[in-house]
Computed example of a mutant assay.
Amino acid sequence: MQDLLDIHTHTLASGHAYSSPREMVAAARRKKLALYGMSEHTTLMPGTCHDFYFANLKVIRPEDDGIELLMGAELNIIDYGGSTDLMQFYLKNLDYAIASLHNPCIPPGTAEENTTALIGAMRNPKVCILGHPDNPAYPVDLERLVRAAKENRILLECNNSSYSLNSSRSGSREIGVQMLDLCRKHGVPVILGSDAHIDLDVGNHDNCMEVLAAADFPDSLVVNYDIDFFKSFLPKK
């Protein structure tokens, strides 16, 4: 199956990434992706862009030499109710949002607190993906999370960076296999995200492929192989 998209990526605007938007798009073109998305960290992440960045996304062309572009954000979940850190005024400009738990923005809670936070973030109408939900620093009730993802039509992410052997989220592979087992059981689709912070990693889902293989996960539940399937999870305009 051909991997057609990558929408969890970060450019220089995120503060701790190393390539420009044009370099990232060029890398997506070289990888022959059909769809590419930029998802900068939102404002409570140290060093990232100001809210105003998300007010000016209109200057980005929706297509670039045959590649469809989406402009999103990786929202920080900031409390155990699932609130996020970007105001509605700016959220309305996004094509999509990823919601994630990050140490600089919220301390790890109990499994109950972390699960409730992720499920609460699903209520944000722009959120269609939960980023790296298998991070061992934030233990969750996987059964409850997978069932909630199905009920709310939210994609759970397999994060290539998390599954790297030198990842700061060591242990994600093992939890990822457990998550995928439950997704297969309940028929819940997943998305592969590179979490690229440099152009060399755009479209790189090699670690994800290893975890999918370990879980014997069906291609039919991976949205990266079907653009229309993926778009069915995007928030309505």
Rank of each mutant, 00 (worst) to 15 (best):
R147P: 09
K185T: 14
G187H: 15
A111T: 13
K126C: 11
A214V: 05
V146D: 05
R184V: 07
S161N: 13
A117R: 08
E174F: 03
I78H: 02
E112I: 15
L75Y: 08
H102P: 07
M45C: 00
M45D: 04
Y96S: 06
E174P: 00
H132L: 03
G72Y: 01
D134N: 06
R144T: 14
T115C: 15
G81S: 06
G47W: 06
H50P: 05
L130K: 10
A137Q: 07
L94F: 06
M1C: 01
L118V: 09
E68P: 03
D141L: 15
A17K: 00
R123N: 11
P104K: 08
K31R: 13
R153D: 01
C105K: 07
K150L: 14
L44H: 09
N224H: 11
A73K: 14
L156S: 09
Y80T: 01
R22T: 04
V222H: 04
H50Q: 14
A121H: 02
T42Y: 10
F229E: 01
E143Q: 14
P46H: 09
V25R: 03
G109I: 11
R184T: 06
A13R: 13
D226W: 12
R144L: 14
N93G: 13
L57P: 06
L91Q: 12
H41M: 10
R153W: 04
V222W: 02
L75M: 13
P136M: 04
L156T: 03
H10S: 09
H205P: 03
N103H: 12
T115G: 15
H41Y: 04
L212G: 03
C183N: 12
L12I: 07
T48L: 13
H10E: 10
L118M: 14
G187P: 15
E23P: 03
D65Q: 08
S170H: 00
A117I: 09
T42I: 10
E210R: 07
I60Y: 04
G187L: 15
L200Y: 08
L182V: 04
R169S: 03
D181Q: 10
F229K: 05
C49E: 12
Y138V: 10
E113F: 12
H102L: 06
V190W: 10
G82H: 08
I154C: 00
E157T: 07
Q2P: 09
V140G: 05
L91V: 01
I78W: 08
S19K: 03
L12F: 11
T84W: 11
A55Y: 13
I198Q: 06
H50Y: 07
L69A: 08
R184E: 11
R153N: 00
P218Q: 12
S39M: 10
Y138F: 14
A27E: 05
